[in-house]
């Protein structure tokens, strides 16, 4: 995997949305193929399952599903490839991976989801601090 990515170059821009779409799938496949080695490098076996990492990657891609400009998609793909290369090259540390892709957005941060809905401003403030 690593040798494949070592030879990567900035590709010419996608000519159409279809081409950009194809490149996105190619990237997703490449990311999925590198997951076992990432698990090895960062010792993630007891933290996360490969399937969870796959869905995490998919979620990152879906986050940009609204983008329809091929040039923007190319740029996002380039950044994604850069990130993937950093990860595979062990340029990151274990807590980076866990923080970004395992715990992700939901952990650490308090769940401010449905629970506080309908509460008054007073109660929301009350839960965070005494001084308001």
């Amino acid at each position: 995997m690593a040798h494949m990515m070592r030879n990567l170059k900035v590709q010419p821009n996608s000519t159409s949305l279809e081409e950009a779409r194809k490149r996105t799938f190619d990237f997703f496949r490449m990311a999925c193929r590198s997951i076992p080695s990432i698990m090895d490098i960062y010792n993630l076996q007891d933290v996360v399952a490969p399937s969870e990492l796959r869905s995490s990657v998919a979620a990152q891609i879906r986050k940009n599903s609204h983008v329809s400009n091929p040039k923007v998609i190319d740029m996002l793909l380039f950044k994604a490839m850069e990130e993937l290369k950093d990860i595979v090259d062990h340029s990151k540390q274990r807590h980076h991976i866990i923080g970004q892709y395992v715990v992700g957005n939901k952990g650490q941060v308090q769940d401010l989801g449905t629970k506080d809905e309908g509460n008054s401003e007073f109660l929301k403030n009350f839960y965070t601090t005494n001084y308001f």
């Binding site: 509460n119 008054s120 401003e121 007073f122 109660l123 009350f126 839960y127 005494n130």
Partner: peptide, 21 residues
């Protein structure tokens, strides 16, 4: 938390909201 704030918050959780903030 300050005493009156606790009672005020509890009143809201219990569904009998006190009218002072």
């Amino acid at each position: 938390r300050d005493d009156w704030k606790i009672v005020r918050a509890l009143s809201e959780v219990a569904g009998v909201i006190l009218p002072y903030d």
